[in-house]
Design a protein around this nucleic acid. Structure first.
Lengths: 341, 341
DNA sequence: CTGAAAGCGCTAACAT
DNA sequence: ATGTTAGCGCTTTCAG
């Protein structure tokens, strides 16, 4: 049996409230009794029961986290960011993986709500977020990352400007001489895929390059999907000279297909993508890509939650768009092309 | 304000206990009142407060998880395994990252304890586990993964036999003709590093190959460390023809150093390691390595916790050693060597 | 079959 | 300065 407040109190012939006071450093307590209590606390290795505290204080100091999975380096890094902030403030993380499953996402939402979490950071699967209303009603702060819901703009989020990032990535290709640029993206039911496709279109249009629908591949953010789509491109009469992939796995798949077809990267076909975080440095050719500031996304999301928790007026929303970093490596062939600026 | 049992009871002019009964499907309740209650529950969108339930039931259904970090694919996958089991049983995960810091590990231990977790899965940083005694006293099941504490054998764990795995990995090199085999491992304060070094020694000794202390590099499981140690090897008069690295990052670092020195892998120096989970398939040459069944480690750890929770006698310990998989790829040069069997 | 009441461990008025 | 007591929201005897 673990020792509780009452045990300490009884042992010292004082009241539980006095003990509670010294534990929480509240009010005045006589120095002598304080000392005695402190000693007993130590002697009995007393540790407050946080469940009881939570029930009383109505705050669990738990931050719920719903992500598709953590094998993805991006999400692993975001979580690392949230964890850092949480730890600094005595909060903890309840980790839930939706595994790209809408239903599971909904289940976890209810689950976390019942567990009285103090805040939620979520990367939703689709573009709907009906569940969010519940949180709003309860006054629990929710911060969206990655995909954004397709509702009004009245919510907090931390993302990058995907349209802009994709546009710049594509513009880089155009800038170094490419005209025949294909796009491989994920499901258009996700804002991220959709916006990256949008940025690609924008760049082409702005540069007077017609959009070739045959060069748009819609997949699912997995390597297999990039591979398959690229194979499709390769079977067409006219080949693109460059590929924009909406994430790293799609790019890896495309690269496989290109290399298997006996073509060279970037000489025959250039490849660029999002989030090619090659911490290994051994993938050849190294991928030119737009890198999201994943850890910052996590820390900022955490900070927003903490901030919102201590304010009653939740109507002011923080809509954070961070700047991604364009990292030019080998796969775009930049160094081998003339700079036409 | 969220709706509670009392509100429903009052609304229906029944007692809270009756409402509680239908929620938990306990005892007999008149069909009519049950129906009325069920409807009200639905109407008011009642959701039980799990904190209150936990206080009463003295079980939180929370599994604590302490790992160095989740950027490491191995841990990310272990967690995925634990999550699957937890979810199936209505448990949830509290994720803590020690960041390889002993002190932080200890803090999180206390932290989780106060939060009344039902069980703990932990990858300890060093080999000590003084805190473990606390858990033993409280009757909370703890399962160790990865590193094992340097105490008696009276605890539960799920690991692989590192000595054996490392011995087999090294034997594979010897088998295909190598004699000059160097070892790069992590801190010997960790059982994992130590055992992998042990296995390497064993293989050499068994094959009558003398152990050259100059070919033992002690690093810290990071890529930088592998790079630095390999550079040291390369400066010596005699070069090894093969390297055994205790994890993937050490191997990547070594590969960098080898390639920078203008040497080829595996022609000049072969490289093998642990856990080269190359889900990308683009790292060249592909690494021969011993792969730990990470997801299984997670699920089994989760299952042990659930099992132990429902039994009072905690004295019987589950010591699970899973079989890793030796994956022969390109980096050992197998296909280019004659099989001397 | 249903209700009243105790209590999980703690905090915070309120009283002394 | 310290003690008494009423809950936090729920489950569970124990009566009725």
């Amino acid at each position: 049996m673990t020792v509780k407040l009452k045990d300490i109190a009884k042992h010292l012939n004082v009241s539980v409230s006095t003990v509670s006071r010294v534990i929480n450093n509240r009010d005045r307590v006589d120095e002598k009794t304080r000392k005695r209590i402190l000693e007993a606390l130590e002697e009995f290795q007393y540790r407050p029961n946080e469940v009881a505290r939570s029930l009383k204080s109505k705050t669990t100091k738990a931050i719920g986290l719903i992500v598709p999975g953590i094998s993805n380096y991006f999400f692993a890094t975001v979580i690392k960011g949230v964890e850092a902030i949480a730890r600094q403030h005595g909060y903890h993380l309840i980790l839930c993986m939706s595994d790209e499953d809408k239903e599971r996402e909904g289940e976890y939402t209810d689950f976390l709500l019942q567990r009285q979490i103090s805040g939620l950071v979520v990367a939703i699967v689709g573009r709907e977020a009906g569940f969010f209303q519940k949180y709003k009603n309860l006054g629990i702060p929710v911060v969206f990352i990655d995909n954004l819901p397709d509702i009004d703009d009245n919510f907090d989020y931390v993302v990058i400007d995907n349209v802009k990032a994709s546009r710049e990535l594509t513009n880089h290709l155009i800038h170094i001489g490419h005209q025949k640029i294909a796009m491989i993206t994920g499901s258009l039911h996700e804002s991220v895929s959709d916006e990256r496709l949008e940025g690609w279109k924008k760049a082409l249009t702005e540069n007077g390059i017609p959009i070739n629908k045959k060069w748009v591949g819609i997949g699912d953010f997995k390597q297999e999907s990039g591979y398959r789509i690229m194979q499709g491109f390769l079977q067409q009469a006219e080949l693109p000279t460059a590929i924009v992939a909406a994430n790293n796995l799609l790019a890896y798949g495309a690269m496989q297909a290109i290399m298997e077809a006996g073509l060279r990267i970037p000489e025959d076909i250039a490849v660029v993508c999002f989030d090619a975080i090659d911490f290994i440095g051994l993938i050849k050719p190294q991928l030119t890509s737009v890198i999201q500031p994943a850890e910052d996304i996590g820390t900022i999301a955490g900070e927003i939650i903490l901030r919102k928790m201590n304010q009653t007026k939740m109507k002011v929303f923080e809509r954070i768009m961070l700047e991604p970093q364009l990292e030019i490596k080998e796969s775009c062939g930049y160094s081998k092309q003339a700079d036409k600026k």
